[in-house]
């Protein structure tokens, strides 16, 4: 496991809901993340998809301890030794932050409008005192250049920039402390298609150059598919499937993954979408369904699904599924394009 960078075991994040009574205590919990285990290898991109309310953002933020996990372990490989992040004190955590960063979704709200671009990018260096004086300026210039930002922009304030350029500033801030691990939380979702492609390219270039490890969270399946080596699918606080990208898209093993794949609108008027119909709505994370959480909407539901929680099992190499019938169901993925079919 020497090339594992991060290992997450049974991660849980429960948010308390206070009762409305004057002195009432906590009565309920929103189980945003409820027992998630996975690992991320050095230099890879792990995609994380799920619909709103699935808890994917919470997973990313709790790994960074932007939200304190309720339970579970997040261990980080520091020079071969696995370090449990939950054990770090606040102060230790602050100095550890240089190893991990977050790129936000909203390029507007994530930059302090009252700071110059230079100060924004320099923040991690200055806050953690990683560099002083001239070195700060030098490193800011390097980071800006890497993100293809015009160096003249450094004196300006964020209001001077478009969404794409702001996102570059956010990326420069994230990479300046030379982190090993970067969480991209819907980092291209707010951008126009033509800008989104550039930012995706930039993220991939940076990874190739510096060996960053990404956790790439998004709801857009084709974007995730494009950038990720492996993809995890999340539903109601839990992982339902985790597999190498192509396997997941072309040969899903979980009914929910199948439903997701069938809903991707193909950029092809000849290929009509035939989405798998899911009954009802995503249930509340306060009171998740018993057994398999997907059973209320699953088209293949059996009695056992309502009572027993399916095991998270590795059915093929690196292909994990949480479904009682993972081995027996025949599910449809995305249609394999001719180019790949021929190559195989």
């Amino acid at each position: 496991m020497s090339d594992t960078l991060l290992e997450i075991k049974d991660l849980k994040v429960h948010f308390p809901i206070r009762s409305k009574h004057l002195f009432g205590g906590v009565t309920k919990y929103v189980k945003a993340v409820d027992g998630v285990s996975f690992y991320i290898e050095k230099g890879e991109t792990l995609g994380l998809v799920g619909e709103s309310g699935s808890g994917k953002t919470t997973v990313g933020r709790s790994i960074l301890r932007a939200i304190e996990p309720t339970e579970g372990q997040v261990t980080f490989n520091v020079d071969g030794k696995m370090l449990d992040l939950a054990q770090l004190t606040d102060k230790e955590m602050r100095t550890f932050r240089k190893h991990m960063q977050l790129i936000f979704q909203d390029p507007y709200s994530s930059l302090n409008p009252r700071m110059t671009v230079r100060d924004i990018i320099a923040e991690p260096l200055v806050a953690q005192e990683l560099a002083k004086g001239k070195e700060v300026d030098e490193r800011v210039r390097d980071a800006a250049a890497l993100c293809k930002l015009n160096l003249e922009y450094l004196r300006r304030f964020p209001h001077a920039f478009s969404g794409g350029q702001r996102q570059r500033i956010g990326i420069a801030r994230a990479l300046i402390s030379q982190p090993q691990f970067v969480v991209c939380d819907e980092s291209v979702s707010a951008l126009d298609v033509s800008i989104q492609a550039e930012i995706l390219n930039l993220l991939m270039d940076l990874q190739a150059e510096f060996g960053f490890t990404y956790l790439f969270i998004a709801h857009d399946l084709s974007v995730v598919a494009h950038i990720s080596k492996r993809v995890a699918v999340m539903y109601l606080g839990q992982f339902v499937e985790l597999a190498p990208t192509k396997e997941l898209f072309y040969a899903p093993k979980h009914p929910y993954t199948e439903a997701l794949m069938s809903a991707i609108p193909e950029v092809d008027p000849d290929q009509e979408m035939t989405p798998v119909h899911l009954e009802g709505e995503i249930p509340s994370p306060i009171n998740p369904p018993s057994g398999c959480r997907f059973h209320t909407r699953c088209p293949y539901v059996q009695d056992i699904c309502k009572t027993e929680i399916p095991k998270w099992q590795e059915i093929e190499k690196e292909h994990f599924v949480g479904c009682h019938f993972a081995n027996t169901l025949t599910l449809n993925g995305v249609e394999i394009p001719d180019t790949i079919a021929a190559a195989d």
């Binding site: 989104q196 084709s222 974007v223 598919a225 494009h226 990720s228 192509k246 995305v334 394009p337």
Partner: peptide
């Protein structure tokens, strides 16, 4: 510019 599955 649209990401495609087969160009991963």
């Amino acid at each position: 510019a649209i990401p495609q599955l087969d160009s991963t």
